[in-house]
Simulated assay, not measured.
Amino acid sequence: MSQPRRSSPNRNSPVPEIARIGESFAERRVQLHLTQQTLADLAGVSRSSVQSLEYGTGSVKLASVVEIADALGLRLQPMTIAETKAPR
């Protein structure tokens, strides 16, 4: 019988901003001592949506990102195209 597969967050997401946002959300969730399931329940989304966002994998609806941010007490701010191309 095979062992359950454990995955690590993929920080090399093809969409680096989503990976960065997800990492920030995960850090905040841990600070608040919330499980992914508890956060999902508070935000009204699925646990897999929380996990996909935190790991920077899959696709997550913008509405879900907004709901998760709200549950974490975070605010999303729009960026200009110039800001996304600026070196960090």
Rank of each mutant, 00 (worst) to 15 (best):
M1P: 12
R6S: 01
R6T: 07
R6V: 06
S7L: 13
S7E: 12
S8A: 15
S8G: 11
S8Q: 05
R11N: 13
R11A: 15
R11H: 14
R11W: 12
A19P: 06
A19K: 01
R20K: 05
R20T: 07
R20D: 02
I21M: 03
I21L: 08
I21V: 06
G22M: 05
E23M: 01
E23Y: 02
S24E: 04
F25S: 06
F25I: 14
F25A: 13
A26W: 00
E27A: 12
R29L: 00
R29C: 00
R29I: 02
V30C: 10
Q31G: 04
L32N: 05
L32T: 05
H33D: 15
T35K: 10
Q36Y: 07
Q36T: 14
L39W: 13
A40F: 12
A43Q: 08
G44A: 06
G44F: 12
G44V: 06
V45Q: 01
V45T: 10
S46V: 04
S46E: 08
R47M: 00
S48D: 01
S49C: 15
V50H: 01
Q51Y: 04
Q51R: 07
L53Y: 15
Y55F: 15
Y55W: 15
G56E: 13
G56V: 12
G56F: 12
G56P: 15
G58V: 14
G58Q: 14
G58R: 09
S59W: 00
S59E: 03
V60D: 03
V60I: 15
A63I: 02
S64I: 08
V65L: 00
V65N: 02
V66D: 00
E67N: 04
E67P: 00
E67V: 03
A69E: 02
D70K: 14
D70H: 14
D70R: 12
A71M: 03
A71T: 08
A71I: 09
L72W: 01
G73H: 10
G73C: 05
L74G: 11
R75V: 12
R75Y: 02
Q77F: 14
Q77G: 09
M79G: 07
M79A: 12
M79H: 11
T80W: 00
A82E: 05
K85P: 01
A86N: 06
A86C: 08
P87T: 03
R88N: 08
